[in-house]
């Protein structure tokens, strides 16, 4: 039982035992009960569009037209097989994983190297480097799309994975440098000094000491940069043209486009575009929640 409760509380589905005990001391029981019910209701209200999305995605168009809020009595699974086929889902999913994974890895590696140097070699130029990266945090992508398109055209990188991965790397670096720098400032230099005394070179120290030390920060960074890359429409829209290279998000857009698509076609496409991230969220929820909080409590 404990094991199950632990797992459930890991997923956030079950209160953990510590908070339960502190609760038994609560005084204002009726008010608390009303407040609890209210908050649960609010949560359900926020979730209702998502529930609606899942349930209507399994119904026929005529059924949805008649009662949009009905329950799928006879689930129309073929809505999904049609959408799966139409979106070329397995292909686009593979593309997305490749693009997301590569850019997240490159951002994490180059960003952490850069941040390490900025923190441990504190000079005027490293401070300026840091400032220039941090300024990029506020840079709207739309300021760059047109010249970026021209540049990729000249470099022959339009419609290539390489091009889009490089673009995501450059756009992800400001956050990575900012994030790793603030993390590294909070850890002491002793381990690295010990490694140098043991004869590790710079690369050895980075690989054997700094990278392992950064692991929690790296995990958070990879999750968040993956989320933003996965969900991005803009760069795939301008940089990728051939069907075989589309990402899931672009494929949701290009499948539905602006045609008046029927609900039975629209919602399953949207669900397929969403579900992979929901699954990842359920698995990595603890890291994601911790990462969201990190900015507020450390900043």
């Amino acid at each position: 039982m404990t094991r199950i409760a632990d797992f459930a509380s890991h997923l956030g589905l079950w209160p953990n035992s510590r908070t339960m005990r502190s609760q038994s001391r609560a005084r204002h029981r009726p008010i608390r009960a009303i407040s609890t019910a209210g908050l649960v209701l609010f949560g359900l209200l926020v979730l209702s569009p998502i529930v609606l999305m899942f349930s209507d995605s399994l119904r026929s168009d005529a059924d949805v037209d008649a009662h949009p809020l009905g329950i799928p009595v006879h689930p129309e699974w073929h809505n999904y097989s049609a959408a799966f086929h139409e979106m070329n889902f397995s292909r686009t999913l593979g593309n997305t994983v490749l693009i997301t994974g590569c850019s997240a890895l490159v951002v994490a590696l180059t960003g952490s190297m850069c941040a390490w140097s900025i923190v441990r070699h504190a000079r005027r130029w490293s401070a300026i480097t840091y400032q220039v990266f941090v300024a990029g945090l506020a840079l709207p992508i739309f300021v760059l799309i047109t010249p970026l398109y021209q540049l990729m055209h000249q470099l022959n990188l339009l419609d290539s994975f390489m091009g889009i991965i490089l673009a995501y790397t450059a756009l992800g670096l400001p956050f990575a440098v900012f994030f790793f720098t603030s993390f590294l400032r909070s850890v002491s230099v002793e381990l690295e000094e010990a490694a140098t005394i043991d004869g590790c070179g710079v690369i050895g120290t980075y690989w054997h000491v700094v990278l392992p030390m950064l692991r929690p920060a790296t995990a958070t960074l990879i999750i968040f940069s993956s989320l933003s890359v996965w969900n991005d429409l803009v760069l795939p829209l301008i940089l990728l043209t051939s069907d075989s290279k589309k990402t899931v998000t672009l494929s949701v857009y290009s499948t539905i486009g602006t045609h008046s698509y029927s609900v039975g076609q629209l919602l399953p496409t949207v669900v397929l575009g969403t579900v992979p991230l929901f699954v990842i969220f359920l698995i990595l929820q603890r890291h994601i929640v911790a990462g969201i909080g990190a900015g507020a409590t450390k900043g």
Binding site: S9, L11, G12, L13, W14, P15, N16, T19, M20, S22, Q23, R32, S35, T36, L39, V40, F42, G43, V46, L47, P49, I50, M53, L227, W230, N231, L233, T249, V252, Y253, I256, L266, L267, T269, V270, G273, T274, L277, F278, I280, F281, Q285, I288, V289, I292
Partner: peptide, 27 residues
Amino acid sequence: SLPRIRNAIRASLLLPAMMALVAVSYL
């Protein structure tokens, strides 16, 4: 103010932010 259900509610409320803006637009 409600530690008992805090984690579950926080997780539910985070779910929409995990969707792509494209998906949210169509929904």
